[in-house]
Design a protein around this nucleic acid. Structure first.
Lengths: 183, 183
DNA sequence: AAACAAAGTCAACAGTCGTTGACAAAAATA
DNA sequence: TATTTTTGTCAACGACTGTTGACTTTGTTT
């Protein structure tokens, strides 16, 4: 591995930790380069600028695992995705934490919304099928992100200390209702 | 009304519109004073600074109306609070929009979390009673904020265009499951 | 070894940020 | 009317922002 590559990787790693938890606008280039132990000018040289570095942290995101599951396992896997233990360290690489932290960002919000719509809501809509599939998919995502929001952002007591298994069961109960066909 | 008061009110009104929708860190003092047609120096004079102006926008928030309702009407009123039409103009004075926009803010996030915990989660926990009241209250809030997040922040198709009545009914269905005693 | 390209360092840029203090205009008080 | 207090204006401050270009150092190629 060349020296340049390891520097790029150090930058992406530091950028992901900071961008994904604090949000794009709340992190400065010097915050990242300071954490990575690298000169600030290299961000513009290697990634074309701050925005390019942020996009580099999004490049390697795998597709949402739940969507690759069999239909009858979809809800279980979806709930599992959002029931991970509340661990600040692990959150630094949690895609859903990133989405929550950046959706209100004035510069990156649009990109984040597109990402959720096309990579999560649309495929999920196709998977569950039936009438009102769009709406039922949106309701399931509301439950999933709602629980994540209460745990990681609002840090509500009584939810932040639950075990992943308990939490997954609660999410599945709510998710089943969200996905019910109602006509 | 003295000239000073009307200037203060113009500042608070403009600050609320911007802070509550874009988030504290994403709004500059000059954004606000420009909108209000007022000199930027008056923010520090009248409110002690940017942070004081933000806190002034939180000063007149009434208690959550749903919590004043009778127990059997609580869920209905709670759902109603979050089913308001998706209207960018009305959002400028929507408390829940403000909470979502500012919870990830590095400077104001802590204050917002305290506000939700003490003004919403704790009173709600006391109201619903029963075992696991903390957790059930948190789950209801997850449903409520989850739906609001999908509509106003992620702007998911299939949820942004629903009528308030339909949406309230959906929220109540999910909320009833969230509040169920499960032991 | 010489020539070249790549990688990293450093100082400085133009812009924005929140805030301050000196000053002028207006209003209230005497 | 004269004096004091309040209200508003203006320029500038130090700090921080992302980015740039000139420079030195390191590594590779001829």
């Amino acid at each position: 591995m060349s020296k340049s590559n390891s520097t790029k990787e150090k930058l992406v790693a530091a950028a992901r930790e900071l961008f994904w938890t604090r949000g794009y606008s709340n992190v400065s280039v010097r915050d990242i380069t300071g954490k990575a132990g690298v000169d600030a000018a290299l961000v513009s040289r290697y990634f074309g600028g701050k925005q390019g570095l942020f996009e580099a942290t999004l490049a390697e995101i795998p597709p949402w695992e739940a969507l690759t599951a069999e239909p009858h396992e979809l809800l279980k896997r979806a709930a599992q995705s959002f029931a991970h233990p509340f661990d600040p360290e692990a959150d630094a690489t949690n895609v859903f934490t990133m989405l929550l932290a950046n959706v209100i960002d004035p510069e990156m919000g649009g990109m984040i919304r597109d990402l959720v719509q096309t990579k999560m809501a649309d495929p999920l809509t196709g998977r569950i099928g039936g009438s009102d599939a769009r709406e039922r998919a949106a309701l399931l995502l509301a439950v999933l992100f709602g629980v994540a929001l209460m745990r990681k952002n609002f840090q509500l007591e009584g939810l932040a200390d639950k075990s992943p298994e308990q939490l997954q069961a609660e999410i599945m109960r709510l998710g089943r209702v969200a996905l019910e066909v109602r006509d």
